[in-house]
């Protein structure tokens, strides 16, 4: 009987895909050796906590612990760095900050520079956020239209976001200083030299302009994504009904873009309240204290003085934290509101 021979086994071929799978299998097996006993011990329902543990540990060490320490420092005095060496002073630091004849007039406050920083921050945040949202929206609308070299312009507007705030500050300082580029141009055209960074009003104006310029690209991108998700059919339908461009914007674009606008608004506001690096390089908080913002005040009280008043700086930080918390709560409220409206 002629029995056909069994086919010879094919030689194994080691491809990169197989090798990667092998490595993956080994790694997962090792993880299994660790995870399975834990699962047997605590049960499946509690396993998510195990997987969350690395992130919780990072959050705890780098965010929660510093927050708790900051809160603790706010109720201590002296100049010692280590917590246990610092005497408990109760609310003394807060009293120091909030002792004020008239909050609208920093000169009547015990810690006048803090209140100057607070009011400067209010002015800065209001104009910065309004300007940022306005210009980001305009830019996003333009970049969403069919214009020549659209890809190029999208890159151009995003480019400043990639720059370090310190570099942005130095470049603009070079442009705006008394003998800088802008004054060079103005003088050559026959205008008077203007003290852009040495005059209180001008310097506030310029930190708003420069921070808008530096951050606009990122927010434009968010709004552009929102614009692109609006169905074109709505505009077509509006067009059939005789809607003009302005009406389209008010009745179609803006309502549907509102969730993105809210995100931009809140992100811009949080970033503005935290502003430090760019302004510190550009004006150093001056002239006088005209552009001194809250974070710079905290930095100077806590770190830049010979007597480093960590307690006072921490209590100012707690105040700033409360402001940011309020802004975040408003964001949550607005976001929910806009979501339910859309629903």
């Amino acid at each position: 009987m002629n029995r056909s021979a069994a086919p010879a086994p094919r030689p194994r071929r080691y491809t990169p895909g197989r090798a990667a799978f092998g490595v993956f299998a080994v790694v997962m097996t090792v993880i299994g050796w660790v995870i399975e006993p834990i699962q047997r011990l605590i049960g499946v329902r509690r396993m998510p906590w195990v997987f969350l543990l690395p992130n919780l540990a990072i959050f705890g060490v780098f965010i929660l612990f510093p927050m708790v320490m900051n809160f603790y420092y706010a109720f201590t005095g002296g100049t010692a760095l280590y917590p246990l060496e610092r005497p408990f002073v109760g609310t003394q630091n807060f009293e120091q900050i909030y002792a004020c004849g008239n909050y609208l007039n920093p000169a009547t406050c015990n810690e006048d520079l803090f209140w100057r920083a607070v009011w400067n921050s209010f002015t800065f945040v209001a104009f910065h956020v309004a300007g940022l949202v306005f210009f980001a929206l305009i830019t996003a609308l333009v970049l969403n239209a069919r214009i020549v070299a659209r890809g190029f312009f999208r890159s151009v507007y995003f480019y400043p976001v990639l720059l370090s705030p310190v570099v942005v500050g130095l470049i603009w300082k070079w442009i705006l200083q008394r003998d800088g580029v802008l004054n060079g141009i103005l003088v050559s055209l026959g205008f008077d030299r203007t003290l852009f960074l040495l005059n209180a009003d001008w310097s506030m104006f310029w930190i708003i302009v420069v921070t808008i310029w530096a951050n606009m690209g990122f927010h434009t991108l968010i709004l552009l994504a929102g614009l692109q998700s609006i169905p074109k059919e709505l505009y077509d339908a509006g067009s059939i009904d005789g809607t003009g461009p302005l009406q389209s914007f008010w009745h179609i674009t803006l309502p549907l873009l509102m969730p993105n606008v809210v995100v931009v608004l809140v992100l811009a506001m949080i970033r503005a309240v935290q502003m430090f690096d760019l302004v510190y390089v550009l004006t150093g908080g001056g002239p006088g204290s005209a552009t001194l913002l809250m974070v710079q005040y905290i930095y100077e009280v806590g770190f830049a003085s010979q007597i480093q008043r960590f307690g006072l700086a921490a209590s100012a930080s707690v105040t700033l934290g409360v402001v940011l918390l309020i802004i975040t709560l408003i964001q949550l409220r607005l976001t929910r509101g806009s979501e339910s409206h859309l629903a």
């Binding site: 040495l198 001056g286 002239p287 710079q296």
Partner: peptide
């Protein structure tokens, strides 16, 4: 010259650049 004292807040600033540049 206003650049040195007025142009800042909370930090040391030297005026050597202005002198070196003959200002």
């Amino acid at each position: 010259i206003p650049d040195v004292w007025i142009g800042s807040q909370g930090s040391y600033v030297a005026g050597n650049e202005q002198f070196v540049n003959g200002q």
